[in-house]
Every structure is written in C-alpha cells, then in structure tokens.
C-alpha cells in the first residue's frame, strides 16, 4: 500500500478520525508509519486510547441518599381533573384522580337542584335590572327634554 510522509501536525489533525477508525486505509497506514518513527505522537495516541478504554470501564456512580422518597412524593401528588365529571341527579360532585381512577380526591356535596336554581335565577335577575335601567333612563331623558322646551318657548315669543 502506498503511504506518504506525515508531519506531527498532520497526524494530530487526523487523530479524531484515526481513533474512530474512519480514515481511508492508505491514510491510516501513513499515520501508523509515522507513529512507528515518532515517540511523541505514539505516546499521544497511546494515552488517548487509554483514556477511551478507562472511560468505557468507569463504574456506575451511586447516589449518596435514597432518591425514591422524593420521586414518590412527586408522582403521588394527586392530579385534580380539570373538567368536573358528570354527576347524577342525586349524586354528590366528586373529583377523581387521573393517576388513581378509583381514588376520590375531593368530595363536595352540593345539591343538584340548588345548582340548577342558581343557574336559572341569574338571567331573570339580570333581565329585571336591565328593564328597570331602561325605564329610568327613558323617564329622566323625557323630563329633562320637556323642561328645556318649556323654558325656551317664552323667550322666543318675547323677541317676536
């Protein structure tokens, strides 16, 4: 295989690919030829290879404390359903945990009938208030307008 003479700088530039074994065969042979003659570059390649091997053999680290209680408390936090579940006429309103479908997280007893009355009364009350406001505004406007007309008429006749 044909090889060519490489400088130390050229070898260093090819080392990432050389160590990754992605160099073309003839370039790789040229690097090896240089390594056979240059102690400095040979030592560099040897050290980098050792670091790579030692890193791959590093043992797992072990946490100094048990992390499970913290995880358990976080995953155990109940998730309250955003949309309230449908309840029957006689049932209470219950919010169910998403993580534990069988677990009732909160239970607030609100009679279904009183909630319905509350929803019905609201527009009636608002309607009455709106009607009263319209009558009051119309009456006030009528009174003010008629007074203004009456006070203006004598002045007009005196000028004539």
């Amino acid at each position: 295989m044909n090889t060519f003479n490489m400088t130390c700088e050229a070898v260093e530039a090819t080392l990432p690919d050389y160590m990754d074994e992605t160099l073309e065969a003839w370039v790789s042979s040229s690097v090896e030829e240089h390594l056979g003659q240059c102690l400095r570059c040979a030592a560099l390649v040897r050290d980098l290879g050792n670091i790579e091997r030692e890193a791959a053999a590093l043992p797992d680290l072990i946490p100094v404390r048990d992390l499970w209680p913290g995880i358990e408390s976080r995953i155990g936090t109940p998730v309250v359903a955003f949309v309230p579940p449908v309840v029957s006429e006689t049932d209470s309103s219950a919010v169910v945990s998403e993580t534990e479908p069988n677990a009732v997280v909160s239970e607030t007893v609100v009679p279904v009938e009183s909630r319905r009355q509350g929803r019905r009364l609201f527009p009636v009350w608002m309607g009455a208030a709106a009607a009263a406001l319209v009558v009051l505004t119309a009456g006030t406007t009528y009174l003010l307008t008629s007074r203004a007309v009456r006070s203006a008429m004598p002045a007009t006749s005196s000028n004539d």
Binding site: D60, L61, P63, L67
Partner: peptide, 13 residues
C-alpha cells in the same frame, strides 16, 4: 419503584 431500583444508578451516573 422496582424499575427505579434497577436503573437508578445508571441514570444517576
């Protein structure tokens, strides 16, 4: 929790 015990050290590392 069993999954955690099995994989905790690798994830922690």
């Amino acid at each position: 929790e069993r999954l955690y015990r099995t994989h905790a050290n690798r994830v922690y590392s």
